[in-house]
Nucleic acid binder design. Sequence first.
DNA 1: TCACCCAAACTGTGATCACAGATCACTAGC
DNA 2: GCTAGTGATCTGTGATCACAGTTTGGGTGA
Lengths: 237, 237
Amino acid sequence: MNSTSVLAELPLLERRTLSDTVYEALSDLLASGRLAPGDRLSLRQSAAALGVSVMPVREAVSRLAADGVLEVAPNRVIRVPVMSADAFRALVETRIAVEGIAVARAAELRTATELAAIRRTEAAFRAEAEAAEPDRARAVQLNRDLHFAIYGACGLGPLQEIIARLWLKAGPVINLDLRAHPERLRQGFALRRHAEAVVAIENRDGAAAAAAIAADIREAAEFILTRGGLRDVQGED
Amino acid sequence: MNSTSVLAELPLLERRTLSDTVYEALSDLLASGRLAPGDRLSLRQSAAALGVSVMPVREAVSRLAADGVLEVAPNRVIRVPVMSADAFRALVETRIAVEGIAVARAAELRTATELAAIRRTEAAFRAEAEAAEPDRARAVQLNRDLHFAIYGACGLGPLQEIIARLWLKAGPVINLDLRAHPERLRQGFALRRHAEAVVAIENRDGAAAAAAIAADIREAAEFILTRGGLRDVQGED
DNA sequence: TCACCCAAACTGTGATCACAGATCACTAGC
DNA sequence: GCTAGTGATCTGTGATCACAGTTTGGGTGA
């Protein structure tokens, strides 16, 4: 009935269910490392804490569990999985491969606008990291923003979703370590690799960009592995 | 208390919830193309058909929806998404990139046992495809078996999970097309590419193996795209 | 004959209840 | 003093109910 097709441009607003909200809340807890590997989770307690019934929490948890971000043991205990060193290495190799593709494509396809956004977030991260008293949580968030600003330019939606899931999976162990061992040299490495990546993206040099991100990922992983923060058996203490 | 450590070898039996079972049932429907893009799904009807309550179906659907294999519209209608041609192309490019990594690694790392298994499934697919009256459903399954036999040799668990999800997402449109247009030349291409891949894997030639699989994927996709089986708008008829 | 409207029958979402199994603290028995 | 047993209390899972919003079909109006 209504006149023109101006309406056709409406972004088809997405509905937010309580489950979605709970999912994001839990994701945030995991990504920020406040839920550490081995931590247990109770449906009822979580529901009470969030002020909802167990239903939305249940759905959110089952989604997280499907992604391997949470696991429910045969004892019916929900917890964030403790990764063996080998599993962590496999995850890191996967990340290097997949994120390498994304950043290589991004370097070759990025528009001027995207490059500007990447530069901006890189600068923001650098500023936070070099601050006299850096806010760790904020640095983590900015690091994530930078990576995804890059991946966002790869032109492949499905690939970005995959990477987001990988980050969710790696988040607890990485950020737990970051909480345990205040950043120090980690950030020095990250800053250098980020700078290399940005330069490579400016030059549309996909291979160099992928190498920089690969080094960024690998160095952070090595740092954690040498710290011995990962147990090889899944004991609890 | 119990004597020896024979118990330690028990495979830690995984529990199967009803949700898991429903999830597999729906996945199978989608992977085999019996649920086509645009088809709607009702929680209560599905539950009744499966002889369970809506709860397990709800959880399974929410998992599928999280993976983008199903979508629930703002109208609260569950359906398998209709992919635009562009979205399909992005999915195909992602598959080529990700599965390319897996097959390249598999070619370089495969053991003799894994190679034998790959050869076996390749032969099985060839036999079915060259049969006088090939069973389409079985051919689809064998094609899948072959691909995953290869990816299983890549040594990266997380990567295999990613690929499985990608297949689930691409399954409906690919298999719907396969149902609509009886195989014909499609299989001729597939046979050649599979043979090339197996040879490359025998020679531990990662690049060649990746190229063969990329061609396999791309040719199937081109076939579908030129058929015009994909709508560019998400209308319903 | 066509357009409109209203009511009945659906839809998914969320809350609540019921249940089997696991955990843990406590106590009875040696 | 230590172990084995036992009951209360927790766990996730599944079923059922309640609700608001949507769809749909039949009927009434012009």
